[in-house]
Simulated scan of single mutants.
Amino acid sequence: MKVLPYLDAPISQAEFAQIVGISEARASQLVSENVLARGETAHEWLIAYTERLRDQAAGRASTGGLDLVQERAALAREQREGQAIKNAVARKEYAAVGLLADVLGMAASAVVDRFDQLEGLLKKACPGLPQEAETAVLQVIANARNEWIRSTERLVADSVDAMLDVDGLGPEPDLGVEEEAA
């Protein structure tokens, strides 16, 4: 026995929107999301619409973004990572990348300053040193300084790439921009 026989007739989006109290745009969105199908009866549209509402209320339906289960999992992961960072800081095994870069920069600057003072110290300590020998010593020191800087940069880059690989982020993508050779 059908209480509302008019529910067996096909219905338009506008009519359905008016019946359930939603905007016509929302009804159109439900059709595009395949919740409702054009040409179905009002009864079928109401069944599909109420099933969608039940799923949303139970946390089973995705509403465009993450669903409730995914949101909770993402929150738990962030909390776990945050706690791991706090523990590493407490064990003095972790420091911010910016801080490490600043410390490394200060250390490099101190070493470079010492290398730059070598020429004057060499002339003072060995006043009779031939110019060719002085040039050779300074060239070896300059080469060592430059290699030290290159090695440090390479070490940092490799360490950051390894850290990103462990986190599942991978190295930064190559955007096709080539650097000029120094």
Rank of each mutant, 00 (worst) to 15 (best):
T41Q: 04
P173A: 05
G120M: 02
G59S: 06
E44W: 06
Y49E: 07
G59C: 08
N34C: 05
E178N: 11
L118P: 02
E172K: 13
V112K: 00
E51T: 10
L175H: 05
L155W: 03
D8Q: 12
Q117K: 08
A88T: 01
P127K: 04
G105N: 11
L155I: 05
I22H: 01
A25Y: 04
S62H: 11
V112E: 04
L46P: 07
P5Y: 05
D113W: 01
K92T: 08
G105Q: 09
G39A: 04
Q18F: 01
L164C: 15
L53I: 12
I47N: 12
G128W: 09
D8R: 06
D174A: 08
C126H: 10
E24F: 00
L122E: 00
A57R: 12
K124A: 04
K123Q: 04
L100F: 08
Q56W: 10
V111T: 01
Q79T: 15
R114P: 01
P130Q: 01
A74D: 15
S109V: 04
L99T: 09
A96K: 13
A48C: 09
V160A: 02
L129H: 00
I19G: 05
A144E: 02
A90C: 07
Q18S: 08
E172P: 10
L30C: 03
A162M: 02
R80V: 13
G170L: 07
L164M: 11
E134S: 03
V160T: 07
Q79D: 15
A37G: 12
